[in-house]
């Protein structure tokens, strides 16, 4: 017998990259089902295209451009990027735009930096923002939920657009056009296909918390900050929407639970994650209320992704036995 020798520890907890990545994918299943229910065929086509394109580009780039023998498509990160990218798109987006989005997400957002673990920005968001800026018309004509088709669907203003209009005109009565909070919670509203049902996203988030895939710091700090800030604005001027509606609208829930919590691009320590989350919350509200875009979540997350290395450098965990100077 040739014994194996290695330094301790000799056992491993059994956690793996795959488990975490597919865990997040499983957490996205309720929202996926909801999107199929609300947008039908459109949702299916967009998601399938996005996932397939992301996996394909990951494979093609590792294999032919980087020339790596070991392929990484099985670790689930490309599938997850594809899912999240799809969740951020309207359900009637042409396939070719989706493929461009996937190429940017995987190609520029991830593989240029060396692949999983080294990308500074969330790849799905890089893809999404690229599309948002390049194809503003297609990216912001949101189909009304409840239509099963892919082409020729009826579009309407999203709750965020209504809020923006109310702020711009200063006319609080516009806000009465908003769908009820209950509808927004369940998903009876317009928007990107994955972001409409807040309740399903919350279920997924709780699943991830229970499985210890993520910690509470980022979602709680983002949602809390947005709630407090939006409430403050609402109190000062009622033409700003009520905090509950702000939290339930747009990509806030999706961003707070699934995009901002991306391992690679978020800070390592709990303290750092709180700072990161609070900053994202503040930026989101500022962009939504005062910026030119109705939605600020993606930009806020990308901006804070850029600050993550800085946070990691300066926010250290509390050392054992550390004495405050």
């Amino acid at each position: 017998m040739k014994p194996i020798i290695s330094l301790s520890p000799h056992v491993h907890g059994g956690d793996s990259v795959q488990k975490n990545m597919y865990g997040v994918c499983i957490a996205l299943v309720p929202a996926l089902v909801a999107s199929l229910y609300f947008f039908g065929l459109g949702s299916a086509i967009v998601l399938a295209t996005s996932v397939a394109a992301c996996v394909f580009f990951e494979w093609a780039i590792t294999r032919f451009i980087l020339g790596r023998e070991r392929l990484t498509i099985c670790d689930g990160s490309a599938v997850l990027t594809g899912l999240l990218l799809g969740f951020n798109l309207p359900s009637n987006l042409p396939i070719w735009i989706i493929i461009i989005g996937a190429l940017v997400a995987i190609g520029i957002g991830k593989m240029t930096f060396g692949g999983l673990g080294t990308n500074p920005f969330n790849p799905a968001l890089v893809g999404r923002v690229f599309l948002l800026i390049s194809f503003p018309v297609q990216m912001t004509s949101w189909p009304v939920s409840g239509q099963m088709g892919y082409v020729d669907v009826e579009t309407a203003a999203t709750p965020l657009a209504i809020m923006k209009a109310a702020i711009k005109s200063g006319d609080a009565s516009l806000l009465s056009q908003l769908p009820s909070s209950m509808d927004m919670l369940l998903g009876q509203t317009g928007g990107s296909l994955g972001e409409v049902s807040a309740i399903c996203l919350l279920i997924g988030c709780i699943f991830m918390l229970v499985r210890k895939i993520i910690t509470w710091h980022i979602p709680v700090s983002i949602l809390g900050t947005v709630f407090v800030l939006a409430g403050l604005f609402h109190l000062i001027d009622p033409s700003y929407a009520a905090p509950f509606q702000v939290i339930l609208s747009g990509g806030l829930m999706l961003g707070a639970c699934f995009m901002a919590t991306d391992y690679v691009t978020s800070p390592m320590t709990g303290k750092g994650q709180l700072i990161y989350g609070i900053a994202i919350g503040v930026l989101t509200v500022l962009i939504r209320d005062f910026g030119s875009y109705p939605e600020g979540m993606s930009f806020a997350i990308l901006i804070m992704n850029g600050f993550t290395p800085l946070i990691n450098t300066y926010i250290k965990p509390k050392r054992f036995g550390e004495v405050k100077k």
Binding site: K2, P3, I4, I5, S6, L7
Partner: peptide, 8 residues
């Protein structure tokens, strides 16, 4: 000859 196998 190798009498053990190193892993790490």
């Amino acid at each position: 000859p190798r009498i053990a196998e190193f892993d790490g």
